[in-house]
Design a protein around this nucleic acid. Structure first.
Lengths: 241, 241
DNA sequence: TCGATTTGTCTAATAGACTAGACAATTAAT
DNA sequence: ATTAATTGTCTAGTCTATTAGACAAATCGA
């Protein structure tokens, strides 16, 4: 819970204060129901004006992370970050089971396209080969937790799009194609700011941080069956290897 | 290379533009030596003023990512993000071998302290147990790539600090204690903005994004030997599982 | 050499970020 | 009922971010 003023680096002070407080909450230093330090104390701690702190708190209040009560103080409302386990056997829905009461996956759109160099390399295809591309959004307990783009070889899964829209689960669709088991071949993890579309779809404040995972799944014979580019809001999710 | 203006979310437009361009570079869309679009084109693409784009480019120039040449254009100078492989057998120096010509690790400070609840839980100790805490900084080819804090059971490694300062490598120090082999038990990965100290030590623009990894290593019998909290600049490193 | 293209520098105006101070409204303890 | 502590609201001033326009300086090809 420390932040400096001096050189802003293009990130507003109220934003950095909000991030710092949110970090203390999702990181477990402040539990649900806890009272935050008073605005005056926070202002002192961050070497900022009380109004600046109030702006940070207003943002967190809008996110539902804290709630202010006049005369009493400001309290932590929600907390907890979801953990997505990644390993050789990685299954999105299974991995989050028990952490959220509801988990809904939406299929936003899909199309057949020619593989770019990156997609072809990931799937072991020739550049330009036909691939199915689907855009998805997953929501846990009403809060969006991932925005994903998945590419699959068209030759193997010509009507993947229709099936994913019906079955909701990637694992179930693979099973419907006769793929009983599959494994994670590689996962690359990076981080960046959310862009406009992601900001909207994931319900984030502009400039929010995303964890980005690029994953290749292979069938039991080691043949690549999907390449997924998933974006997780860093404030709601963490990845566990 | 798209960014919106409207609601800033507390992140300045020049900063978002710089991030977007840097992403295209470290992500491989722009190769070393490539010429960037002209300032006028970039301004149009980002719906921003040319001066705002210039500010973004100035930041990237200071980072050494691009270089402007009057009358000619602006060119990509460096590119490439380092990949740190994470698995059951994770070794920092080995993992980066071949990706950087030089890799120097500094031991910043160390002290004996009592384990907090989180540290104790990670190391399987009782809260308050004595632990060795060391602060480190790793630099590849002159660019800082990680800032780490490591906790180890004092009982097992009473003079770890002296040895790490001498041997530079964690693996070597463990070997000096008779631990021939060790394995990664778990890695938690999250992301957040850098704080002031990190910004300074890692030579980042304030507000830069960090990949944060919390790792527990265990010896061949499964006993936890170290808990490391490492922060990697997302613009210079990616984690590969 | 000339003209087009591109980066570099300067001035100026507007909107947002941050600070500062004062006071109202609500709560809880005495 | 009084008082202290805390959040809510208002005004105002300073500094930064962003836009806008104009022109200089360097490069490159015709």
């Amino acid at each position: 819970m420390t932040v400096s003023k001096d050189v802003s680096g293009g990130v507003a002070l109220w934003r950095r204060i909000a991030d710092a407080i949110r970090l203390d909450i999702v990181g477990g230093k402040l539990a649900s129901g806890d009272r935050l330090p008073t605005e005056a104390l926070l202002a002192e701690r961050f070497s900022a004006n009380r109004h600046t702190v109030r702006r940070a708190l207003a943002v967190l209040a809008e996110e539902g992370v804290v709630g202010a009560e006049q005369g009493r103080g400001t309290f932590v409302r929600s907390a907890r970050r979801l953990s997505y386990p990644i390993g050789r056997r990685t299954r999105f829905r299974e991995g989050l089971k028990g952490q959220a009461a509801s988990l809904v996956s939406h299929s936003l759109s899909h199309r057949i396209e020619n593989a770019t160099a990156a997609v072809a390399a990931a799937l072991g295809l020739k550049p330009g080969a036909k691939v199915v591309r689907t855009e998805g959004l997953s929501i846990a307990d009403g809060r969006p937790i991932s925005r994903s783009t998945t590419w699959l070889p068209y030759r193997l899964f010509p009507d993947f799009a229709e099936r994913i829209a019906r079955l909701q689960s990637t694992t179930a669709v693979f099973a419907s194609y006769g793929i009983a088991d599959y494994a994670r071949a590689s996962t690359r993890i990076s981080a960046r700011h959310a862009d406009v579309e992601e900001t909207k779809l994931l319900g984030l404040a502009p400039g929010a941080i995303l964890l980005v995972s690029e994953a290749v799944d292979v069938d039991s014979e080691g043949i690549p069956i999907s390449y997924a580019l998933s974006r997780f809001p860093a404030e709601r999710m963490e990845l566990v290897v």
